[in-house]
């Protein structure tokens, strides 16, 4: 059985990764762009945040700048697709690939940085409440944004680009904006998580896309047609609790190295069920 501490940790990580899930939702669902650059922008956010904190900056300011860094990566992905006519999948792959070197540069060529003894947003506070507060802000922002006339335009490009353009929406600009905001959220998630665990690694973004997507799918399954961003966060928490349960339960004999296999099976199970409905 899971201890209360393990459940609490799963909820905290779930809340933080909820920010990632919202970013993934924005690209994959709202603007219908399969953006693979988030594996790189996650680390960009983490790296920027870590370096800033190590140089004595305010940890909340570090979150903001990390989000801007992630957003910049999203803008590059958008430019590759919109202006250089590189396919959507390939644009994301190129940016994620190139970001590995950029992230190493940001981290000063060291593949990992520790934040032990540094002041982070979690220093001296209740981690659960802080994670909650950091997650509520993007939920409120996105919920408001998508109910505005601008947000409707953003949603329209993911569902019907022909009508969107005929309705006066600048599809290219909207696409770049969507990618920027999405990757800003991914970067912010990377920054928050790295402050939470007190450690930044250049390869910690690998698989973040799959984790985010799984959270989105679980959230949609649990809270169908509810507030999609709340659903993303709930999906992320549910995913973390499920993983914690699977890893910590001795019944199935699963171990930490089985994490990716469990995630893969969970996606297959959730998506397979979705199609059969």
């Amino acid at each position: 059985m899971l201890t209360l501490q393990e459940i609490s940790a799963a909820v905290e990580i779930g809340l933080i990764y909820g920010i990632l899930a919202m970013g993934i939702y924005l690209t994959f669902r709202t603007i219908n762009f399969p953006d693979l650059s988030c594996d790189g922008s996650f680390v960009t956010g983490a790296a920027i945040s870590s370096v800033m904190i190590k140089s004595g900056c305010d940890p909340y300011l570090a979150l903001l700048i990390a989000a801007l860094g992630g957003g910049l990566a999203g803008i590059f992905t958008g430019i590759l697709n919109v202006y250089m006519k590189i396919e959507d999948l390939l644009s994301g792959i190129i940016v994620a690939f190139a970001l590995y070197s950029v992230n190493l540069r940001i981290m000063g060529t060291s593949p990992n940085l520790t934040l032990v003894d540094e002041i982070t947003i979690f220093s001296g506070g209740n981690s659960l409440l802080i994670a909650c507060a950091v997650t509520v802000v993007p939920v409120a922002f996105f919920t408001y944004l998508l109910n505005t006339d601008f947000g409707l335009g953003l949603r329209s490009i993911g569902q019907n680009r022909q009508l969107a353009s005929a309705s006066g929406v600048n599809v290219n600009a909207m696409l770049i904006f969507g990618l920027a905001v999405s990757n800003a959220m991914v970067g912010m998630c990377g920054a928050t998580f790295t402050q939470y665990q007190g450690f930044c690694d250049v390869s910690q973004g690998i698989g973040s896309l799959v984790v985010g997507l799984t959270s989105v799918i679980i959230g949609e399954k649990l809270l169908n047609r509810f507030n999609v961003f709340v659903a993303c966060v709930v999906g992320s928490i549910a995913y973390r609790i499920f993983i914690a349960f699977a890893i910590n339960s001795d019944v199935l004999g699963l171990k930490t190295q089985d994490l990716n296999l469990i995630t893969g099976l969970l996606i297959i199970f959730t998506m397979g069920r979705k199609k059969s409905c």
Binding site: T148, D149, F150, G168
Partner: peptide, 9 residues
């Protein structure tokens, strides 16, 4: 044909 603002639609 109008400017899409950040106001509730």
């Amino acid at each position: 044909g109008k400017k899409r603002a950040l106001s509730i639609s």
